[in-house]
């Protein structure tokens, strides 16, 4: 024991960590983070509470089931049944396009990625679409959907294509949701350890079977998250709706085919309804705007809650990294 102690002389005591200067900076940094975090929470809370109070003041169940009408005061203008259904319709179209397209793109980028140059190009294209303001997408949409070749997707008379319809708005809105679905699905796929893919290939499964039966089911929570986030963006988008949906208060069908007519026709959504009835809109009925905004916010909050539930439920177990 003593011999050992002699052989290795005791280490000199560690120097005391340097003075309080960096500690102060550290403290200021932490305080700043705290303050900003608290500020952010306060802002979010203010929005929710404000909308909640205003909403509860003005929301009546009857508003949800009455058609809107033009009128001079609030007793005449009715409810917002059409915008509510319009929101659901537009969201359904957008997701129906964006989900398969986004998942397929993500699978290709993550699992195949060949040809390399095209994959990189696609990546940048997706990022570019993600960064494009929706009003620009909407303008682009008016050009595309006014072309005679796509006349069957909206109302047309005498060879002039109107170019505004649920089809048009839904298709362009799918571009808003697409990047979110692609990136979320891709992240989910890339989080799956490589040895799981190899395990599937090593028992004689094809790449496609591996993707279809193992990888996509494993990445499902990410797909759902991306879809929900995309759905939130779609529901909340105003510019595309105002420009491409025609912003007629009620469903204005083109033709007499039951669903097709509606889809080819114009209408409104909750966002365009809020815009219309805000103090700067033509309707200028703020109480209706508050009520509709409250319903809109409630839908988005429910979606967020759904994302959280899916995330938590998916924690079944995992492989050690």
């Amino acid at each position: 024991m003593e011999a050992g102690a002699l052989a290795t002389p005791p280490r000199p005591p560690r120097p005391v960590p340097a003075g309080p200067t960096w500690r102060l900076a550290d403290r200021i940094g932490i305080a700043l983070c705290w303050a900003l975090g608290a500020l952010f929470c306060a802002i979010a809370a203010a929005i929710v509470i404000f909308m909640l109070v205003q909403g509860i003041r003005y929301v009546r169940p009857s508003l949800l089931v009455t058609h809107p009408t033009a009128g001079f005061n609030e007793t005449q203008t009715g409810g917002f049944l059409d915008p509510l259904l319009g929101t659901l319709l537009v969201a359904a179209i957008a997701i129906a396009i964006a989900l398969p397209l986004g998942v397929a793109t993500a699978v290709w980028l993550s699992e195949y990625g060949r040809p390399f140059a095209l994959a990189r190009l696609t990546e940048s294209a997706v990022e570019m679409v993600a960064g494009t303001p929706s009003i620009v997408l909407a303008l682009f949409g008016t050009v595309v959907f006014s072309s005679p070749a796509l006349g069957f997707l909206s109302r047309s008379s005498g060879g002039v294509v109107f170019g505004r319809s649920f089809f048009a708005a839904g298709a362009i809105l799918s571009l808003v949701a697409l990047p979110l679905i692609v990136s979320s699905t891709r992240e989910g796929l890339q989080a799956i350890p490589t040895h799981l893919r190899e395990a599937s290939l090593a028992v004689g499964k094809t790449r496609f079977a591996t993707v279809r039966r193992i990888l996509l089911p494993t990445a499902r929570p990410s797909v759902v998250t991306g879809t929900m986030l995309g759905l939130g963006r779609v529901i909340g988008d105003t510019a595309i709706i105002v420009i491409l949906l025609g912003a007629t208060l009620r469903f204005n069908s083109a033709g007499h085919a039951p669903l097709l007519g509606v889809l080819k026709g114009t209408g409104s959504t909750l966002t365009s309804y809020v815009y219309q009835n805000s103090p700067s809109g033509e309707g200028n009925q703020p109480s209706k705007a508050y009520a509709a905004a409250f319903v809109l916010l409630a839908i988005v909050l429910v979606l967020n809650a759904a994302v959280e539930i899916v995330r938590r439920r998916s924690q079944v177990g995992s492989w050690n990294p």
Binding site: H195, A199, W319
Partner: peptide, 9 residues
């Protein structure tokens, strides 16, 4: 493989 890697099924 080295890591037990059952499919999440």
């Amino acid at each position: 493989f080295q890591q037990p890697n059952p499919f999440p099924l």
